[in-house]
Nucleic acid binder design. Structure first.
Lengths: 227, 227
DNA sequence: CCACTCTGACACCAGTTCGTGTCAGACAAT
DNA sequence: ATTGTCTGACACGAACTGGTGTCAGAGTGG
């Protein structure tokens, strides 16, 4: 409903075709929206959601409220879209880093963790938004948040399932363990950010690896001893 | 500064001694404060922090703003005190449940987890406040949050250290693993609450236990196989 | 040059919240 | 009974925010 490309049936003499600054209307719209999204991510990520007003987002994006409401329904919908964007971005980063090592469980875990902590260090605002601010979503929004985090759980499960001996754990147990593992990483990242990255990433990676290794061992995965 | 017990040096003819309703002034003050704290915990816990106004807290406590500002400096300070209170409460519940089993690592973990999930089920608002709302604290407040969570890490470390073979892991690694384990439990609790406790607690406990067992195994702890 | 649309700045209202101030009445002690 | 404190209700101003409306001017294509 909000987008009326074909304005009306009244055939007013069309002297204008929607081109502006050399770009079509939809293109301009998309550009504005992504500007707002970037501004929103930055602000929410480092000042918190409830401290981020719509006006502030618009000011940072160099636009006005008019365009905010053109692109989003409300502040919450901005948060949701921001979360989705950031979440898939991290998910892809991890996948991309881990996929080349499908044959070696140790490397798989190591590279996945490396990519995760690298992302956190490079984009703390995005991570803060994803791991902290998005938690405050309520009701069905909260459900969508849980679903999205499920993406990480599914990724972890699909990556590790090939290594699992049959009957190592029930499906429910497996999922709980995967969720827990994701939670462990999230929590470590939260603490890392909150303490201004004082701890060297290597320590975090080492500890995380051992947690994963333990879980794997518990499930009957015995990686080749490192060379 | 806010508490002036001895009012002044001017010796006005004291006809009143501070007694009221049979209780001393400080007692009344404490009672009001704890009423406000309870109201704040309940509201913050099930409506979220930024949706909880001071007026709402006062209304729920059956008091007026006058007493809120008598007891707390601001909304944030209420959140901080609420977090502290709830946090130590959970910490004590876990300690109490786990301490009788200091000799058996399996039982130790099991009872600790049982107590944790029982607390979550019994007091979701408190847990929500502790695990979700408190995350939004910024700046030095955030540091106090991290510190408080450190209490759980220390508890876990002190409980498991007796079982550790020497040289199983560096101190840093150990702490990272403990933080991760706490994070795993927190995340599982968050998801449990968000999904309205649909999943049976036993599944969560079982999965959590295996995570802990894996970590223990990774560190060289081999509990007696269950009878 | 003209007709028309797109753009961005701003005004504006309604609602909410914080934090303080005021005030009449209840209560205690002499 | 009287004096003084304690209590709770309410009023009030200031600030902020969400969301909508208005408007003049720039840019477009004919």
């Amino acid at each position: 409903m909000p987008v009326n490309k074909a304005t009306d049936s009244a055939p007013s003499p069309r002297r204008h075709s929607g081109q502006y600054a050399g770009k079509a209307a939809t293109t301009r719209r998309r550009e504005r929206k992504s500007k707002l999204l970037a501004a929103g991510i930055a602000l929410i990520g480092d000042q918190g959601f409830n401290a981020t007003s719509i006006d502030a987002v618009c000011a940072r994006a160099g636009l006005t409220k008019r365009y905010f409401y053109e692109a989003f329904d409300s502040r919450e919908s901005l948060l949701i879209e921001a979360f989705r964007a950031v979440s898939t971005e991290l998910l892809q980063a991890i996948s991309q880093a881990a996929l080349p090592y499908l044959g070696d469980s140790r490397q798989l875990v190591h590279q996945g963790l490396r990519a995760t902590y690298a992302f956190v260090a490079a984009e703390p605002a995005k991570v803060r938004l994803m791991f902290i601010e998005a938690l405050s979503l309520r009701g069905q929004l909260g459900r969508s948040y849980v679903e999205s985090l499920d993406g990480f759980v599914q990724l972890l499960l699909s990556l590790t399932r090939p290594f699992l001996p049959p009957g190592a754990a029930s499906e429910a147990e497996l999922k709980v363990m995967a969720r827990g593992a994701i939670g462990a990483i999230m929590h470590l990242c939260q603490g890392w950010i909150a303490s201004d990255f004082r701890q060297p990433a290597e320590e975090l990676i080492a500890g995380s690896e051992r947690l994963f290794a333990g879980a794997g061992r518990e499930l009957g995965i015995h990686p080749e001893p490192r060379a």
